[in-house]
């Protein structure tokens, strides 16, 4: 069992088909699987359902798949950074299901943990609750949300070992750990592949059982909002 692949195209070989559901990690452009997105674009696969908190920006990240009209449906919490998204959605080319961010995160966590449904108070009395079972616990109203799984999860981590154990870095962790558990197959792209034993077992964020394929990627890591402060002059 060898988990390390030479590049993203090789890591995705045999996994892609039209109409499939893909989970893509990241928050905004932070911690996104840039290499897998590029390889999926090159593969020509289409009619995709993408589960991802956002949809990149015009011309970068998942925005590339959107520009090429490969996405049929998105499950997201926020898509405000993307003009082509707006155009395709308003023209009816693209389906969209909004999920509150925490509900989306928990649906993915639940899917990966074998939990088909759960109750939350998020969204009670709003559009999000429409068509969902509602129940009262301890005098409070809750709505039922379902767990999510995918044919494929593409995640981005900082370091991996040959077993597929993963460590993320800072806020680039975001949705990646849950998505790694919820894909039938999970492909992780990382900045560095280290030797077995080089990762502290106590510090591993995603145990290798959740990761079937690993590839060392190259990353642009584009910044969406570059905010700085001035050094006080001495």
């Amino acid at each position: 069992m060898k988990k390390i692949y030479p590049d993203a195209a090789a890591a995705l070989e045999g996994l892609l088909f039209d109409g499939m559901t893909i989970m893509a990690g990241g928050f905004g452009l932070c911690g996104i699987p840039e290499n897998a997105i590029e390889a999926i674009l090159d593969s020509g696969v289409k009619d995709l359902t993408i589960i991802s908190n956002n949809c990149g920006v015009d011309g970068f990240g998942l925005g590339k798949l959107l520009d090429a009209k490969r996405i049929r449906k998105m499950l997201s919490s926020y898509v405000g950074e993307n003009k082509e998204f707006e155009r395709q959605f308003l023209s009816g080319e693209l389906e969209l299901e909004f999920n509150p961010q925490g509900t989306l995160a928990e649906r993915i966590r639940a899917g990966g943990a074998g939990i088909p449904a759960f109750f939350v108070k998020t969204g009670v009395g709003t559009l999000v609750a429409e068509g969902k079972e509602e129940r009262e616990f301890g005098g409070e109203r809750y709505i039922m949300e379902t767990g999510l799984t995918a044919d494929l999860s593409i995640v981005k981590a900082w370091k991996a070992d040959p077993q597929g154990n993963l460590i993320y870095r800072k806020t680039a962790r975001n949705f990646n750990p849950m998505m790694a558990t919820a894909g039938k197959v999970t492909v992780a792209e990382v900045e560095e592949i280290v030797e077995l034993g080089d990762l502290d077992p106590d510090a591993i964020h995603t145990p290798g059982i959740f990761v079937q394929r690993v590839v060392k990627g190259s990353f642009e890591k584009r910044i969406e909002q570059r905010t700085v402060r001035q050094k006080e002059s001495a």
């Binding site: 898509v79 405000g80 509150p100 961010q101 925490g102 509900t103 969204g123």
Partner: peptide, 11 residues
């Protein structure tokens, strides 16, 4: 008008 999404506001 534009629908940007709720992000984490509902939670």
């Amino acid at each position: 008008k534009m629908v940007k999404g709720m992000g984490g506001a509902m939670d």
